[in-house]
Design a protein around this nucleic acid. Structure first.
Length: 287
DNA sequence: AAGCGAACCTGGCTGC
DNA sequence: TGCAGCCAGGTTCGCT
């Protein structure tokens, strides 16, 4: 389910209840998710302290004592639910279908990872070797960091024939954008998703106003979504990273056949398929 | 080499 | 009520 803002919301929720906690048990209720769990998973984690919880792109990085990092990717349907203690878990009827991983802390807190489609995965790595990890090695810059600016984006897009929609979904170009937010960003930037990346990058030696547009709208959309996620989960009991919190703010995604929300635009939102994914856009105001 | 489509899974919704 | 078909927010693999 989650794109960058949802993963960030989950990160905050876990941090709120689990930071500085010591893992007392790890129960794996199946062999793996998308990939098998790492060998010796439970033994490696039990007894360690959670030192910090970070995020890179859509990856959660749970930093454990003594240089171990626990990587979690939520895939499409991964979520965590947190309970204060055993009795709180029992009060909701215990485990649910697709509860795959159960983390218990010495404080009594329980975190349950649930993932119906099992596109998510978990892995353990040495924190030192993080740059070399197959999933983290080739990821582009964080869109909310100062490194993400118009020149940097133009450099990445330069010479690419692929549509801008597909390019922005490429995690090597920018980290953490997914299908929904890319649609929303291009809508706000008034750029057609069908434009080639190189067209958006513009001519050599100049900073494309289109890239500036995309960068500023990217930061806006992500920040708004993170705020929406954070404000909705007042009590962090469940950290499900559901896009529902921001869904009412979608201006184009999922609005096929509806009138464009743009000022004075009478266009109708269209849905097309690009690289196997649905793209929603307004052919009238996105040029 | 870049750029597609398919594959990995389950569940929810639509239409017959 | 049942069932087939299509869709889903991600990532990787393999073929052109």
């Amino acid at each position: 389910m989650p794109e960058l803002p949802e993963v960030e919301t989950v990160r905050k929720g876990l941090e709120n209840k689990m930071l500085h906690g010591v893992v007392s048990s790890l129960e794996l209720r199946r062999e793996g998710l998308r990939y098998p769990f790492p060998i010796g998973f439970s033994d490696s984690v039990v007894g360690r302290t959670i030192v910090s919880i970070d995020r890179r792109a859509k990856y959660l990085l749970i930093r454990m004592s003594d240089g171990l990092t626990w990587i979690v990717h939520l895939g499409m349907t991964g979520k965590f639910t947190l309970y204060q203690n055993d009795s709180e878990l029992e009060s909701v009827g215990g485990f649910a279908k697709h509860d795959h991983v159960v983390i218990k802390l010495e404080s009594g807190v329980i975190a349950i990872y649930n993932d119906p489609r099992r596109f998510g995965f978990m892995d353990l790595i040495d924190t030192d070797g993080e740059q070399n990890h197959r999933h983290l090695a080739n990821i582009g810059c964080e869109p909310l960091s100062d490194d993400f600016h118009a020149q940097a984006l133009a450099f990445e897009l330069k010479g690419k024939k692929t549509p801008i929609k597909t390019a922005l979904l490429d995690q090597r170009i920018v980290a953490g954008l997914g299908n929904i937010y890319v649609c929303e960003i291009l809508y706000r930037a008034k750029i057609s998703p069908k434009r080639s990346a190189k067209y958006v990058a513009g001519a050599n030696q100049q900073v494309s106003h289109r890239c500036e547009n995309i960068v500023s709208h990217t930061k806006d959309v992500l920040r708004e979504a993170i705020i929406a996620g954070g404000s909705t989960i007042s009590d962090f009991a469940a950290v499900d990273g559901d896009l529902g919190y921001f869904a009412h703010s979608f201006r184009v995604y999922g609005r096929e056949g509806e009138v464009c929300l743009g000022e004075k635009c009478e266009g109708v939102v269209k849905r097309i398929t690009q690289a196997g994914r649905s793209t929603f856009y307004c052919p009238q105001c996105q040029k």
